[in-house]
Every structure is written in C-alpha cells, then in structure tokens.
Design a binder for these strands. Structure first.
Lengths: 150, 150
DNA sequence: GGATAATAGTTGTTTTTGTAACTAACAAGC
DNA sequence: GCTTGTTAGTTACAAAAACAACTATTATCC
C-alpha cells in the first residue's frame, strides 16, 4: 500500500485502505439511487431490499430474505411491516409450520418493484459505463468474493 | 447485466447490482476491523476516522476532516467531543478566525492511532492478499474513481 | 459602519438502528 | 406426554444517525 499523494506521511494511505475505500465507493455509488426509492417511494434501504427480493424470487420468508441480504431479522421485520402497511406485500401463514409466514408482493408491490428495477438497471449501466467492460467484470467478481457471495 | 444463477427471473441480478454489491462488500470487508476499534477502543466509525485523519495529516479543522471523509459536520462534532473527553485530542482556537478550531492528537491519541494504523495495515494486506497484485490495483483504482477521490 | 449574508461548529429533536428479551410454535429425548 | 431446546418472528429499550434550528464569528456590500 503506497501513498503517492502524501509521501511525507507514515506510509499508511487512508484513501486506499480497503474498508474505508469500499465504504466511500459504496456510499457515492448508491446515493443517487437512494434518492429514487427514498424521495419517490418513501422507502428505506431495507424496504427496497425486501421489495427487490420478493420481486426477484417471488414468495419468500423473512428469514430467507434476511439470510440472502445479510440483514438482521428485526430490520427485516420492520421493513415487512412497513411494506405491508403500504399494501406492497401480503403475508400468509405456512400451514405445515405456523411460525413461518410467506411474503409476496401485491400487484401494487409488483408495479413498484418493476419501476424501481428498471431504474436500477439503467443506474447500474450508467455506473458501469465509465469503465471498460473487462474491468467492470473484474470489479464485480472481486466484490462478490469480498461480499462472500461465492 | 446477466443473471446466471436464476435464469428464470427477469434478467435483473441483485447480487451484481453495484450499489448493493458494493455495500455488501464494504460491510463484509470492514466488520473485523470494526471490532478492533469498537471492542478494544470503544470507538465509533466516525471517531476512528477523525483519529486517522489527525494521525495522518496532523492538525486539521473539523470542517476539513468532514470534507475529506465525506461526513456531516454534526457527526464530526460529536466524534471530536468524544475523542476530547477521552483525551485523544485537543483543540485550539484559531487567532485569525475565531470560529475555527484546530484539532490535534494528544500523545495518547497518537499512540492509539499508531496501534490502530498498524492493525489497519495488516488488515488491508490480508484482504488484498486473496487477490492478484494487478487485480487489486485495478480494484483500488476503480473504487477510488467511484468514491470520487480522483 | 451597519445591515445582510455566509461560515464553523454546536445543540435539540426525530428517525433509524442495534441488542436483548420476549411470544408462539415446533422438535427431540426420554 | 412432558421437559428442554430450537426456531420464526416481534417488541421494548438503548444507541446512533439524520435533520433542522441555533450561536458566534467573519465577510460583503451599499
């Protein structure tokens, strides 16, 4: 880890320190998209994540979503409540195991999902567009590894 | 953006969506280091960021730190208070402009900084170590661009 | 030089998160 | 079948973050 900009420091470069760098990149990269689901749909981050999971994978339990999104069950629980209040999803108890409830989007939820998904696709393309295709492939591969997705 | 794992979905792949992917990678990559400054020093993220900035760049104002770390001034203000309470830094008013205060680490702050910095260097090396050197260079370059560092 | 605006930093209030304890349902062992 | 343990999800309370309004000081400009 070198430090080109401040060679008079002690050899540690904060702007290249991966936890800091990743966090800053993640913040910058998500801020404009955040505005969409926040200002336009009044959603929190966990809420759109639940919405996206249900939109993508159909019916899921809170636990399954939490596991895939690495999100604590209390956060999921609150997001589900909120989405339910806004009529974006409905729950149905599992008959075999009555602790479990299956979550699925309502038509309203589906439509919100489709709109946000399309925006997300464009948004991702715009972010990726500033790099070479092979570079962006390397980036995603490394990030998936860091994220523990594979 | 293709979706190999769930080809029966609608072509959107959440695990490759950059804002989500970056955030997950950032979370995973920082969790173990977070434990160090949290459990061992009782620090919050913003507090170690202030500490690191002062350790790296010497005397700075709250505003300068906030700008470099992209952190809101209220968060910086509270972190500075906390670090001051723990005798990690001291403030001195600027004589030219008495709104400004210059922040600098105390010897105790310096020593905490050095310890955390050494851990950070090792930690970064461990993270980077799982990739090729040229790949990691590409990763950092792209992340710096995404983060708006250059 | 006095009104107005801008700036550095703080404080107060509201949201959101984190953590732990909780309920309800099921499972296992005996 | 009854104790003990586990699991899905919720709730309550404490910690932290977000946001807006504030103080104190300096800059602008007529």
């Amino acid at each position: 880890m070198r430090n080109d900009k401040f060679p008079d420091t002690d050899g540690f470069d904060l702007q290249n320190f991966l936890p800091f760098l990743l966090n800053q990149a993640a913040e910058s990269a998500s801020i404009d998209f955040q505005k969409v689901y926040k200002d336009r749909y009044g959603m929190l981050r966990t809420e759109w994540r639940v919405l996206f999971h249900l939109g993508l994978f159909g019916s899921m339990t809170a636990k399954q979503i939490g596991h895939r999104a690495k999100t604590h069950k209390t956060k999921i629980s609150r997001a589900v409540h909120q989405l339910e209040n806004r009529r974006f999803l409905k729950r149905t108890r599992d008959d075999q195991d009555r602790r479990v409830e299956w979550l699925a989007l309502t038509p309203m939820g589906e439509s919100a999902y489709r709109e946000l998904r399309d925006i997300a696709v464009q948004y991702d393309a715009k972010l990726a567009g500033q790099f070479d295709v092979d570079e962006i492939a390397i980036l995603r591969k490394m990030l998936r590894r860091l994220a523990g997705f594979e």
